[in-house]
Design a protein around this nucleic acid. Structure first.
Lengths: 223, 223
DNA sequence: ACCTGAACACCGTTCAAGT
DNA sequence: ACCTGAACACCGTTCAAGT
């Protein structure tokens, strides 16, 4: 289980990164301070130099994984729709890359109130709201888009990630009722990508319709 | 901490129900087999008569809470839209009644594959699919509605439930950036009920539009 | 400055023993 | 039949001691 045989000096970031890799490999349930220590070539007690305790470590793990998406979404001047779309795809990639960690991202209370998962840092939320404000959204509308966007990401990605973990396990459940059994192919996870795209489009269209109420609504002549 | 002083004989359902109450009162982190035993007036080891272990108990807790919604949604002949709406409201009531338990409902792998949280029983899913089939949905469309409905519930309710737990805690976070700070009122949880309703309406409209493509789309004159 | 060893209180779980 | 007590292996965490 030892991993970093040639350990170049520990620090907090390295401990958190090792915890992410450990959970990716062995699952959240296997992570203990002592085992993570062994994974790093050190006694578990040494970790307390860098992290206040196990709960704080798990928060840091959630923040680190949620933060992986930041690098991907540069502030290119594409407009807010493309920005949200890229952010959504980035978060989806991160969730699929760390399926064992994502439930932490989804359920750990964020550092500050107002911050809603799966975004977990004030900077990420600020950046998103800034894009919306720059696009002309009033405060209320910007906040509404942020809230619905968060709910969408959380629901779809948590669903996809736990459904993915499901395929590996038990296949022999006796009491599956008829319609559920018949729809088995349609309920398998491989439709997840399409679902994600469709729901994302619907969400963005809804936001766009509110933003420019002149467009996209029937009955009212355009321009 | 003792609770059932006059204990009328333990059984599995009573143990699970006590675990739900315990988590409601003290939080998931406080639940140990030994403390739950004490809560029931018994040694922790006695619980192994009724439950295979802690993990299985948590699964049972999630199933029990998710199952509370079943009683509320009778099979009245209101049509599928009202059925879904009632189911959504029922699940929201349950989530708000058990905010500490809901993360378990959301993240514990369900008993069977194909079953997606926050619905957790094959019977509940079967019943939902039956309603959709009875309304004339083809298999693919029924499955698609079920998937998007699940994602919607999961995202919104998890968001609402963790945001609610947030209000109680720390108010003094130093590094809140300007837009986030300014939008504080709009990000507070009390808009959750309105958000839920709006997103639910949008989801149902989308499903309805696919179901009856003649209605609800612009450009094509109605009737 | 950084890690270890021992120690403490507490877990989940098993099982022989009690009633 | 149902619960207890003791036991085991393992936790998280603290802290004096080592280097």
């Amino acid at each position: 289980m030892a991993h970093d045989a040639a350990r170049p000096g520990l620090d907090r970031a390295r401990v958190v990164a090792a915890a992410v890799r450990f959970i990716d490999e062995y699952g959240l349930g296997e992570l203990t301070m002592r085992r993570l220590g062994a994974y790093l070539g050190v006694e578990g007690m040494a970790l307390y130099r860098y992290v206040p305790g196990r709960e704080a470590l798990l928060d840091a793990v959630a923040d680190a994984v949620a933060g992986e998406v930041a690098g991907e979404s540069r502030d290119l001047p594409d407009g807010w729709v493309e920005h949200l779309r890229r952010l959504a795809h980035g978060m989806r990639r991160v969730a699929l890359a760390h399926p064992e960690v994502f439930p932490l991202v989804a359920t750990r209370p964020a550092a500050a109130p107002l911050i809603r998962p799966p975004l977990r840092s004030p900077r990420a939320v600020e950046s998103l709201l800034r894009v919306l404000k720059a696009a002309g959204f009033p405060d209320d509308a910007a906040a509404a888009v942020y809230r619905s966007f968060s709910g969408f990401l959380l629901g779809h990605l948590l669903l996809e990630v736990t459904a993915a973990g499901m395929e590996t396990v038990s296949e022999q459940i006796p009491d599956i009722p008829p319609i559920v059994r018949r729809l088995r192919p349609q309920l398998t996870a491989d439709r997840a990508a399409i679902d994600f795209e469709e729901a994302l489009d619907a969400l963005l269209s809804r936001a766009e319709a509110r933003h420019r109420p002149r467009l996209g609504l029937p009955r009212i002549p355009q321009e």
